[in-house]
Design a protein around this nucleic acid. Structure first.
Lengths: 196, 196
DNA sequence: GCCCAAATTGAACGCGCGCTCACAAACTTG
DNA sequence: CAAGTTTGTGAGCGCGCGTTCAATTTGGGC
């Protein structure tokens, strides 16, 4: 019955996420969005309510397209601990390769909008929970295979890895030499292995 | 010869820091600043150049009044490792007690303004270096007293603790139960003690 | 006591922000 | 083909932002 959309909503959310990720929430104006996405303000507001709504959609998309991939990546088979290391080092490498590292969208959102934005606080917590859960699944597998010590406090270690990852993303944004953090990551991982 | 200031510049910077810390950079309007600080826009602009200049002054003040206290706190005498733990747990406690934790001004600034603001990037890196150096001094002392293993990679461990601290400050802003992170901090500290 | 440099003040500047709306176009359904 | 509903579009809304400036006040140095 109605006239169909001329744009793909998912695609728009994905590119909006990229913009917010790079330029921040306030740093990305509605004019920026309409220009880069090729979507008229009117369409954007009928679809997402307002700029804030689009941002929440971007955060949800980040959760599904980024955070949710952690667990599968860790459980892809073989030793888990090296995979955890590879994930952390991967972010360092990303930061080292681009001259303007944008860190983590979640850490950026938290830094910019919290406290003071309950909806964003909820989304941020949601994504962090997904990440932490990914680490937890990986660590549980590592304990099962004897890769990690049976005495390891898995939930605590998962939370630690999440903290480490987010802290890494913060530091990397201002560090002229991100690769020096590899040794720091390794130090943090020392306590996880069973060979102590 | 000239007419003297009616406000104390240091005091204004201190209160501006508090405002930026709580509400963020974009979230704090010049109107907010003039209202809360009791300083006319004209005076503010002649003293600090512009809003951005005032923000940089606030970051420098954060470095001197917060970050620089880390080393003395760790080296105040007695075992260092419990002091490191106390510092990290202190931030958790602060977050747990107030219902709207504001995290760390540096992590907030990085999240909001990086990449894209070279001056802020420089200030952020500067503060993080001070923090990391504080941890390094503490760890060196710990190694000297045998509290930490002689084989500990001190610079790497210092960087790890900085990452942990910043990550902690990010997570705490969205976490309904910050105190659960105590166990995570303890897990991270496991690898530092010499009793392995 | 007068001078003058610097500080305070009131008022307002232009700009870009997030956002809205009336109107025309497009597609499905009967 | 006509009806009906939702879409894209052009133009512009009011607001608050960061910022500026002429006029006035202030107080130390000669």
């Amino acid at each position: 019955m109605p006239r169909p959309r001329t744009f793909d909503e998912q695609d728009v959310v994905d590119r909006a996420m990229e913009l917010f990720w790079t330029k921040g929430y306030e740093g990305t104006s509605v004019t920026d969005l309409t220009a880069e996405l090729g979507v008229h303000p009117g369409s954007l507001y009928r679809t997402f309510g307002d700029k804030h709504g689009l941002f929440l959609a971007a955060l949800a998309h980040y959760r599904d397209s980024k955070a949710r991939t952690l667990a599968p990546a860790l459980l892809a088979g073989g030793p888990v601990l090296p995979r955890i290391r590879a994930v952390l080092l991967g972010w360092i490498e990303v930061a080292a390769e681009q001259d303007a590292p944008r860190g983590c969208l979640i850490a950026n959102a938290a830094g910019e909008l919290l406290p003071g934005d309950p909806a964003v606080a909820c989304s941020v917590h949601e994504v962090l929970t997904v990440v932490e859960d990914g680490f937890r699944q990986g660590l549980e597998a590592a304990v099962r295979t004897g890769e990690a010590a049976a005495t390891l406090d898995v939930p605590a270690a998962a939370a630690m890895l999440t903290m480490l990852l987010e802290g890494l993303q913060v530091i990397v944004k201002a560090d002229p030499d991100p690769r020096r953090l590899v040794a720091a990551v390794d130090t943090a991982l020392l306590g996880l292995a069973s060979a102590r």
